[in-house]
Design a binder for these strands. Sequence first.
DNA 1: AAACAGGCCTAAA
DNA 2: TTTAGGCCTGTT
Length: 270
Amino acid sequence: MQIEYTRGGVLIKDARFDIAQTFLCGQCFRFNRTSDGFGGIAQNRYVFLVQKDDGVLIETSKDDFKNIWQKYFDLDTGYDEIISTFPQDDAHLAEAISHCGGIRILRQDAFEALISFVISQNNNIPRIKNLIEALCREYGKRIGDGAYAFPTPEALVDANLEGMHFGYRAPYIISAARDYYDGRLSFERISAMSYADAKRELLMTHGIGPKVADCALLFGYGFMQAFPVDTWIKKVMSERYGKGFDPSYFGAYAGIAQQYLFYYERGTRE
DNA sequence: AAACAGGCCTAAA
DNA sequence: TTTAGGCCTGTT
């Protein structure tokens, strides 16, 4: 990877980084396509990115890049090396990677990932995004013109979500926020655990099942072996890998393999 | 109109 | 331990 600091921002070259794949693969819900790039809110800031011929331009300052976005976009991780750890005789995975190997796993805020995927259950992408934006507008800090940060755990603990169309997910959101605020699900505590212990801990919260737990662990808590099993991955597993499949087949970075397979199978949703 | 959307909870075997 | 139903809401 090569980094160039320019007037317009920071240019990332020679990295596996395709912003359309990264933002449309379903791992995050607050980035949107514009005519010339993708913009969104993360880390309490708005950021805009453009796919250039020679790399990805992140429109930000050198300081913000080093302090925030370098980590958020996982730019210290070598994806070629991770891909080399996958089973090399897996033709289907190789095909998926050739199709969407520019996905990078965003290192999202753990609380945001947790709540976002609680909202995502048995739901569709456009409505998930609308619900999350409404939650941010109502309970998040205003950070600019019509832009709101994701709410803090404290802001959601005593929130009244009635009338916001969350349906049966509303009490799940509150219980997850409470358990995060109390410290039981804090990033510090969970990320220090083994994957098995961390998942067991998340599953104790009402409204968090295996799928949501793995999404939060992969996208928020930094567990790259977390392997979310949803309807699409179930389809891939039954058609390609057999019923008694164990995700450890993909190794320590199974979650990244999951994203390749998921996005390749499902295709784009905006 | 019925089914579906990146599931989870509860009850019952 | 695994497996049906039911579920808020909105869209097709």
